[in-house]
Amino acid sequence: MPHPLTSSFRVETLRSGEQFRAAAALYTRVFGYDRPEFSLNPNLLSALARNGGSAVGVFTSQDDLIGFAYGFIGRDANGDEFHYSQAAVVDAAHQGEGVGRLIKEHQRRVALGWGHRTMRWTFDPILARNAHFNFTSLGAEGIGFVPDYYDRPGTDRVVVEWALDRETDPYEDLRRVAPPLLGPTDWGRVTRGTVAAADGTVRRAAWLAVPSTRPGSPVDPAGRTDVAALRARLRDSLTMFVTERSVLVACTRINATTAAYLAVERLGGEQAR
């Protein structure tokens, strides 16, 4: 059961060697890494924090680090610059307490302080909870998709872009649209339709069904999801969205088994990627 937001947490930019070491340890523990090449160097975090990047943490009242994110300045092939958030982690004991939101909002302030106007990061498209946070909670968009982002199987990633100083969200009303009734047999497949915006205009839309929780969890039907096959279907569908220049604007839970992404045509004024 989610815990209520806790006001005793504090969020700050990491500055000391002790904090950077604690962040590296939290990162390794949360991701379950046991190979040295996947570890995080505290010296790197210090250098990033001093030179246009971010290293932010959330602490309990007992000064325990329970959340952490880091990033750096990036530039894509089009010459667009942004703050790239490489990772954000939350201690498992504090999931659902609003720690992730505290992290991203502080990282946003740090990025704006460096003069960045957008932030990007990636996430695994099979994780509906992360998608809901990115799109529905933060108000970011899925602007791209990269197969095998880390050059190894199982690392397909959706590219997220968050406008840090946008005064109005052009997709705000669309993020609240209820998806159609979809189930496990629809996972990874696209359902076409339309959605009505607040101004009455009707826009083409597509729903992409995914598991509402990580495959293999207790609500996974019979616990027999073929994850490799599901990832292949998701790859095909997300690649199609990129080809169509659609953006992902929401991921909504339908029931205990299924959630659905909403992909819509890019609205006027939004730069194509």
Rank of each mutant, 00 (worst) to 15 (best):
K104R: 07
Q95D: 08
V202G: 03
G98Y: 02
R108P: 11
A250V: 08
E12S: 15
S16L: 01
H132I: 04
A250D: 02
D199K: 12
G71F: 04
V190F: 04
G154Y: 12
Q86M: 12
F123D: 08
W114H: 05
P42T: 14
D63A: 11
G144P: 00
R253C: 10
G79S: 06
A77F: 15
S46R: 08
R157M: 06
S7N: 10
N41R: 07
P42H: 09
V110I: 14
R176I: 09
V30R: 01
A206L: 02
A131R: 01
M119A: 12
L127A: 03
A88R: 00
A259I: 03
A163W: 07
H3K: 15
R176S: 11
P218S: 12
G115D: 12
A128G: 09
D226H: 12
S212I: 01
I126T: 05
A87G: 02
D169C: 10
G154D: 05
E37F: 15
A128N: 03
D80F: 12
E105G: 06
A198K: 13
R266C: 06
T201G: 13
Q19E: 15
G223K: 11
V30H: 01
H116V: 04
A55Y: 03
A250L: 07
R253Q: 13
Y150I: 03
A263H: 06
V89C: 00
V89A: 08
F59L: 01
R10M: 13
I66R: 01
S16W: 03
Y27N: 11
G216E: 02
V190Q: 08
G154Q: 08
A250Q: 06
L164K: 00
R204P: 14
V146A: 05
D148Q: 14
A197E: 09
A228H: 10
R21F: 05
S39P: 07
W114N: 06
P4S: 06
Y70K: 02
L26M: 10
P36D: 14
R129K: 14
A232F: 08
P2S: 11
R235C: 00
A24M: 04
G113R: 02
V202M: 07
S39Q: 10
Y33C: 03
A163M: 13
N51M: 03
R214K: 09
T136H: 14
G193E: 01
Y171N: 05
D151G: 04
A25T: 09
N41T: 08
R192T: 11
R152C: 08
W114Y: 01
Q62A: 14
Y84G: 03
A259G: 10
V159P: 00
E97I: 07
V56K: 00
V159N: 03
Y149P: 02
R189M: 14
D64F: 07
P221R: 04
T28W: 06
V146K: 03
E167D: 14
W207P: 14
G57V: 00
S8Y: 10
G113S: 04
Q107S: 00
A229V: 07
M119F: 02
A205H: 04
P179C: 05
D199M: 12
H106K: 06
D199E: 10
R231K: 12
A47H: 15
G53T: 07
D151P: 04
P153C: 07
Q62D: 15
L5I: 14
T6W: 13
A87W: 03
G98N: 03
R175S: 05
R175E: 00
W207T: 02
K104M: 11
R273T: 09
V56M: 05
F72C: 06
V58H: 02
R10N: 09
S85M: 07
V190M: 09
V160D: 09
E37W: 14
A228S: 13
